[in-house]
Amino acid sequence: MSLVTAGVVVLDCAEPEKLAQFYKELLAAEEVGAHVNRMEIRAADGFRLALRRDVNATAPSWPRPENSLQAHLEFVVDDLDAVERLVVSLGGRPMETGDASGPTEERGYADPAGHSFVVRRGTPTAPKQG
């Protein structure tokens, strides 16, 4: 029997309320916990994400190496174009990965606080480089 009953991905950010709203809409999730410095949401499939207040949070610089990728989220989708429109309408932005020859079945984005995430179709086609 495992002592750990659930896992939660936690992103530090300056404004957890705003970032929680972004991910609630992107994932069609519901808020399952909140207090002054932390918001937690859960998607219909059980995926849990928490946003923790850190007034000194700095966004990763990925794909640039100086503050590189600290962590990222990956979401499996059916329609890359529709998801891109949603991400941008919610305040996210596309990220230039620097590899135009890479697979076209995934796209990189940053949420409104600068955390990187990838949306992809199917299984990954190439290992992480670098």
Rank of each mutant, 00 (worst) to 15 (best):
S2C: 01
L3F: 11
T5F: 04
A6I: 00
G7P: 00
V9L: 13
V10T: 14
V10W: 01
L11G: 01
D12G: 03
D12R: 13
E15V: 12
E17F: 07
K18G: 07
L19T: 09
A20I: 06
Q21N: 14
F22D: 08
Y23G: 03
Y23T: 08
L27S: 03
L27H: 04
L27F: 12
L27N: 03
A29S: 09
E31G: 05
E31N: 09
H35F: 13
H35I: 02
H35K: 05
N37V: 06
N37W: 01
N37H: 08
E40D: 11
A43C: 06
A43N: 08
A44Y: 00
A44T: 10
D45G: 08
G46T: 08
G46D: 05
R52M: 14
R52H: 14
R53A: 14
D54S: 12
N56S: 14
A57N: 15
A57V: 09
W62Y: 15
W62R: 05
R64H: 12
Q70W: 02
A71S: 13
H72G: 02
H72Q: 10
L73W: 08
V76D: 11
D78Q: 15
D78N: 14
D78V: 09
D78W: 01
D79V: 04
L80S: 09
D81P: 00
D81Y: 01
A82V: 04
E84T: 15
L86C: 02
L86T: 13
V87T: 06
V87G: 00
V88T: 07
V88I: 13
L90P: 01
R93Y: 00
P94Y: 00
T97C: 02
G98Y: 01
D99C: 00
D99Y: 06
S101D: 14
G102Q: 07
G102Y: 03
G102F: 03
T104Y: 00
E105T: 14
E105L: 07
R107I: 11
G108C: 14
G108F: 15
Y109E: 10
A110I: 07
D111F: 08
D111V: 05
P112Q: 09
H115P: 09
S116E: 10
S116L: 06
F117S: 06
V118M: 15
R120V: 01
T123V: 10
P124M: 04
T125R: 14
A126D: 07
A126N: 06
P127L: 11
K128G: 00
K128V: 13
